[in-house]
Amino acid sequence: MEATAVKKYTYKDFVSDQEVRWCPGCDDYVILNSMQKALPEMGVEKENVVFVSGIGCSSRFPYYMNTYGVHSIHGRAPGIASGVKLANPNLSVWIITGDGDAMAIGGNHFIHVLRRNIDLNIVLFNNEIYGLTKGQFSPTSLVGQKTKSSPYGNTQPPFSPGELALGANARFYARIGGNNPKAMTQIFIEAHRFKGTSLIEVLQNCVIFNDGCFTDVTDKEVKDDRQIYLEHGKPMIFGKNSEKGLVLKGLKLEVVIIGENGITEKDLLVHDAKEKDPTLHQMLVRLEYPIATGIIRAFDDVTLEEREDELTKKIKANSKYKKTDDLFFSGETYEVK
């Protein structure tokens, strides 16, 4: 994919001629711009990029990208994207989905695509609500949340996308605030480079039906204190003045303050996204304070297409069947004269 003489692109090359129709102020614009900025950095030819979406606000995304694209049916983008990638492994294939699309109607496909580890990238726009159908609770809505379909408060406990993904053996999982284009762009580039299925959960604000759903963690005023941005190989530090950190105490992550009780930077956990064992990644995903963002897990593993390719090469090399005639006329045939 990273061919030697890839054309130089700018973000404009990835902007299609279609008018973008999301609500003013929606985080979806941030995601779109971040993607259009990330693509020129990926070293991939425009004609080798495919965006596949399901149904929902987020799923309009492919229309706005000047690449190949399929706006498919509700929840089914993983199936279509898997077929595209298996048919032509040279393509950079992106699934664009939302919390309802991925985890309600498409829940089965979502876990299986993660399990198989095909080299695909999934951008999950999580706004904890159904937007396009105008405001019903989704599988990530909170208990008690009042929505059009839960006027007295939602009674269904939610999924945590990260926990679900790691449970389904996701090799790459990142989480990022919808108002953080700079980090998002970088994560998209890293996801593209990662061989295997990458899942990026964007905490995306819905200005109309669930406004402010993530402000307590993503708001500029609080984000440094409420989020920890993880980077592989670096100590787990956060806080406005980088004064806080994470340590492991027993089976729990604990927030400590550097300089207090003799704690120094050396006592802090160092993030290892590439670790095969997902235990610590799970703990980071579950952490409520601070909320872990950045690339939480990036474990290198064999991809499905690598396995298939190896098998196919081996079988082709040893097979007596080169053409279908070899097969049709083989074995128990007989002549009628």
């Binding site: 495919v50 596949v52 993983p78 199936g79 279509i80 077929g83 990638k85 089965n108 496909h109």
Partner: peptide, 13 residues
């Protein structure tokens, strides 16, 4: 459903 959708993806490709 994934049987047919993967085939649709392959047809697109």
């Amino acid at each position: 459903i994934a049987g047919i959708t993967s085939a649709i993806g392959a047809a697109f490709a």
